[in-house]
Amino acid sequence: MIVKIMDPAGPSFPGVHYNDKKIDKGIGELMLMKNFPSFINESSSKQEVRNYLRAISIGNKKC
Rank of each mutant, 00 (worst) to 15 (best):
R54S: 14
L32Y: 02
M31T: 06
H17Y: 15
P37C: 00
N51I: 00
G28L: 05
I56L: 13
S45G: 14
N51W: 03
K61T: 10
R54P: 00
V16F: 03
S57F: 07
S43A: 05
N51V: 02
P8N: 04
G26S: 04
P14N: 06
D20H: 15
D7M: 14
M6Q: 08
P14F: 05
A55E: 11
K34G: 07
V49F: 01
A55C: 01
N41D: 13
L30M: 06
N19V: 15
N51D: 14
M33W: 00
P37G: 01
G26F: 01
I5K: 14
C63A: 13
I27M: 08
L53Y: 02
I56C: 09
P11M: 11
Q47S: 11
M31Y: 09
A55H: 07
N51T: 07
C63T: 08
N41K: 03
P37Q: 02
A55Y: 07
I58W: 07
S57G: 15
I23E: 04
I5T: 08
V49G: 00
K46M: 10
G59E: 09
K25R: 13
I58Q: 09
N19W: 06
P8W: 02
Y52A: 02
S57E: 04
I23P: 02
L53P: 06
I23Y: 05
P14A: 02
F13E: 04
